[in-house]
Amino acid sequence: MIKAENILVQFGGISAVNHVSIEVRKGRITGLIGPNGAGKTTFFNCISGVQNVTEGKIYYEGKDITNGRGFQLCEAGIARTYQNINLFHSLSVLDNALIGKHCRTHYGFFAALFGTPRMRREEEKAREDALEKLKIVGLDHKKDLKAGQLPYGEQRLLEIARALCTEPKVLLLDEPAAGMNATEKVVLNDLIKKIASMGITVLVIEHDMDVIMNISDYVYVMNDGFLLAEGKPEEVQRNPEVITAYLGGN
């Protein structure tokens, strides 16, 4: 689905991502773990068009999308959530979800101006779908609240709903469990599995070993910009280098 080859990202002299190759297979939940500053988010930014790579190539469904623009990649079917929550804070929960529907709602300026039947039909469709996606994450009853008023954990869920609204083929989740309590984490795990069962390929960054081992089919481990290990969760968990990196990191 997504194939990143030999990605190098340099900030000034430092290599945040150092010749990393990762393959995200269709229909799977792929995990990406690593200690703080390992370069996971930077790698995500490359795939989602936020960050240009210094070297390397990224392919999506066989097409070269290296250094593509964010909004185009979203339209192509790559959606993401952010580690530092990036919601539209002053807008309602529903509006946040509706903005996710932006590139799947088809009408132009004049249709909007005159409120044509097509515009109304498209808006109605977008609204229904947005509400359905909010329901999946369990926020439909809070649709009129401002996004900024939600507790932290729910803001993360809203980010996921908003990303789902873009009707992605691949969903990139950057530490979705950060700041969540134990019960919320359990709900989140089920949610991620549910998303995968909807036929959406998932790539998830996670600090929490237990979470990643629980949900992912395949795991990549990054450390200090390098790819340290990859494999099935139980293999990676036993890998002595990974254990050292984590113990050393902590």
Partner: peptide, 12 residues
């Protein structure tokens, strides 16, 4: 509200 995530949500 947020240029970065507007871009991420498919908005040019």
């Amino acid at each position: 509200d947020n240029t970065r995530s507007a871009d991420g949500m498919g908005i040019n």
